[in-house]
């Protein structure tokens, strides 16, 4: 073995444990795409409501079913994750919060606020439903 081969290798993406910020970056994109599709579904439901109470009743039934509830919960969670991380991005855009410690704190803050807002929205909705 030549000394050159003993140099540390850069780990492959699948082996390297991604830092929280990298995971959030991937999640930001994934939730962004999910939200785009979700927005189309919501517009479709809105169009059903504009069409007639009967067509809306079909959409309403689907939303109340277990898969509709999973869809709504996923959408709300995705919305808040993208929302919080998006605000984090705005701070970066004006040059704030690039220190490694700050980046780590804001990453954890994003996850915390996302969970808090998701639970808060779900509680408001559950309270409404009675």
């Amino acid at each position: 073995m030549t000394p050159q081969n003993k140099l540390p290798l850069s780990p492959h993406l699948q082996i390297y444990r991604l830092p929280l910020t990298a995971l959030l970056s991937v999640a930001h994109r994934a939730t962004g795409v999910v939200l785009g599709l979700g927005a189309m579904v919501l517009v479709w439901i809105l169009a059903a409501a504009a069409n007639s109470p009967e067509t809306y009743a079909i959409a309403y039934q689907h939303l109340g079913a277990w898969y509709g509830q999973i869809f709504l919960f996923g959408l709300v969670f995705s919305l808040y994750l993208h929302f919080c991380n998006g605000i984090r991005h705005l701070f970066w855009d004006v040059g704030l919060g690039f220190e490694l410690e700050t980046v780590d704190i804001t990453a954890k803050l994003v996850i915390f606020v996302t969970l808090a807002l998701t639970v808060a929205t779900w509680l408001v909705a559950a309270n409404m439903a009675g």
């Binding site: 809306y56 709300v76 929205t121």
Partner: peptide, 17 residues
């Protein structure tokens, strides 16, 4: 807009009327 929308929809019954 997003905060307003999410909490408005969550805080009302979403029947057609």
């Amino acid at each position: 807009l997003v905060l307003w929308f999410a909490f408005s929809i969550a805080s009302m019954p979403i029947d057609h009327a």
